[in-house]
Design a protein around this nucleic acid. Structure first.
Lengths: 338, 338
DNA sequence: CTGTTAGCGCTTTCAA
DNA sequence: TTGAAAGCGCTAACAG
């Protein structure tokens, strides 16, 4: 390993002069810099950032945690897209990203200690775990956290939340179905977290502002990104005294499974029952019938989280909750009832 | 920040004794350890791994690069699953994982320098970029690299390759179609990399061992994980003088698009044309008709890569090429021709 | 303009 | 059984 010492010796300057030259300090004249840089080149010197960090007490490193409660990890189609954008934005700003493995989170190790021992400047959580103690401790620690999409919105001074404008977009989606003539709509919603409550609120608002009566039967509890329960839930809905004409699923992944189940039962989409998903995964636009869904702005979500992280370590005070606009994709899975 | 010095002062021992006690050294008697650990507890001391690393010249940190050539990053449905398993396996072994952003790779920065300055012990590449110079330099550097799935298999002493047993499984898939009565099969294959060549080889072998004539018309060039070219390619195939009864697509993602295109053209799957994908993404089992595909063993692929990385830094000499078995999922998209 | 020196937090030899 | 001291690679205050 070539160190700054080697460069100093070889170039005839002292270590501090070399350090300054490499930092492009005004104190060092051009000719010295040139000389030093040529030696750097010659020896193939590469500065050791670990040493630099230790000295400066600046670490330029964020952690990322992926939704500990699920098996999905990076395979979560929505979160992986958000993560992509987060990482690229962070990378543009010259920070590093360290991944905290699901194993680490599940093992019950002290997450705060883990992060501190690695000098992480902040942690990005792709959906908080809704039960994990360590995640909670991390959120209420002095390490800044930015949580996207799945969170409880517990107030914590040091935690920042980003999500789509779920209430508004769910209201839009519901209004669209109503406009198309649907009066009996069921919303299979996910876990009780902030985004779910918002979606339910938007759902209700649309129903009520259309002059219809909201009744609790319109809500059915499900889970996000979990196909296993879908056939039971769908069967339950099909045997209700009032069978809906339209079912909103918690997300596209579950909605695909709903397609499958309905197909097996000989029920046509959208002729017999209409379906909508949520998230806007690429492939739902290419299945038959093209699935109506909410397209979350994955790029904006990821970038926003990154910007908040960066502004935080710059000592700024961003908003604690940021909402990002989402769009409706009409598809063909919600029929028009005459 | 509480340092080892603080613990030393507070406990009345010297820094070195504290260090030894925390490393559970035999030199330190139980009562001293107990005393020291109680002070650690009291002060909330957390060891600084950066300092430790610097001192020991051990860094316990791997890099991960995601397929620079594409927009997908972590959204790549196959690679994200592999990555999941890689990270968890690495995490179990107490190493950290640092993400190298696509931005970093695209920007043309010196990747080797980047990795060295961060003291990365090795780099995991999810599909090599087939053109990127920096990626190549990295692979031929003294930093060990493990590449999964998309690679050229250029010989490099310090690069290790893992993929599914593509030749064998593609032979199986092709044989299955032949057995079902298909004689006119077209394989839309991906970029010219090792895995593609293997798949093509397996495809040929199946055709020839069935006593059929292989002809180059059976191969059509496409791309992996790219929907944009699919409709052109499909249209091209449909206007051939001999229209095939079965089309193999490069992957599930493209195959979904093929479903879409054929549907738009009024061509039924599998009655008119049979389709198969490749990779085994969860949702292809839930679309209609259920898509025949090759299920790559994502868990084994990821874990194997991790194990190779770890064995490398332990000074072992793993094989340079490791093949993992894959399975066929029959689905319903390859019809039986009587 | 440049060098000497101290020190970031930690481990480890050497000496007691 | 413990401590002093050196040093990992680097930066920066201070002194010239």
């Amino acid at each position: 390993m070539v160190t700054i010492k080697d460069v100093a010796r070889e170039s005839g300057f002292s270590v501090s002069t070399v350090s300054r030259a490499l930092a492009d300090s005004d104190l060092i004249p051009k000719h010295s810099k040139t000389k030093i840089k040529s030696v750097v080149e010659k020896l193939g010197y590469i500065p050791n950032l670990t040493a630099k960090s230790l000295k400066n007490n600046k670490f330029y490193n964020f952690g990322v945690i992926t939704f500990a409660g699920e098996e999905l990890g990076f395979s979560h189609n929505l979160f992986s897209g958000i993560l992509n954008n987060f990482i690229n934005e962070i990378g543009k700003n010259k920070f590093d990203v360290t991944v905290l493995s699901k194993h680490l989170v599940d093992s019950g190790e002290d997450l705060v200690a883990y992060c501190k021992s690695r000098n992480l400047n902040g942690v990005f959580m792709l959906s908080g775990d809704f039960s994990n103690k360590e995640m909670k401790k991390l959120q209420s620690s002095d390490i800044p956290t930015v949580v996207v999409d799945g969170f409880k919105n517990d107030e914590s001074d040091n935690s920042y939340y980003v999500s789509s404008n779920n209430r508004e977009v769910m209201k839009k989606l519901t209004s669209l179905a109503i406009q198309k003539g649907h009066k009996k709509i069921v919303y299979v919603h996910g876990e009780d977290i902030y985004v779910t409550r918002e979606r339910i609120a938007g759902f209700k608002e649309a129903i009520e502002s259309a002059g219809m009566d909201f009744n609790p039967d319109m809500l059915v509890a499900g889970h996000y990104y979990d196909m296993s329960y879908v056939s039971d839930v769908i069967d339950g809905i099909l045997t209700k005294e009032v069978v809906p004409t339209c079912i909103f699923m918690p997300d596209d992944f579950c909605a695909i499974k709903a397609y499958d189940v309905l197909h097996e039962r000989g029920i046509r989409i959208p002729e017999d029952i209409s379906i909508a998903g949520f998230d806007g995964l690429e492939y739902v636009k290419h299945i038959y019938p093209k699935m109506a869904t909410v397209i979350q702005n994955v790029a904006e979500l990821g970038k926003t989280c990154a910007k908040i992280m960066i502004s935080l370590i710059n000592g700024e005070e961003p908003q604690h909750l940021t909402l990002i606009g989402a769009d409706i994709y009409n598809g063909e899975s919600i029929r028009t009832i005459k």
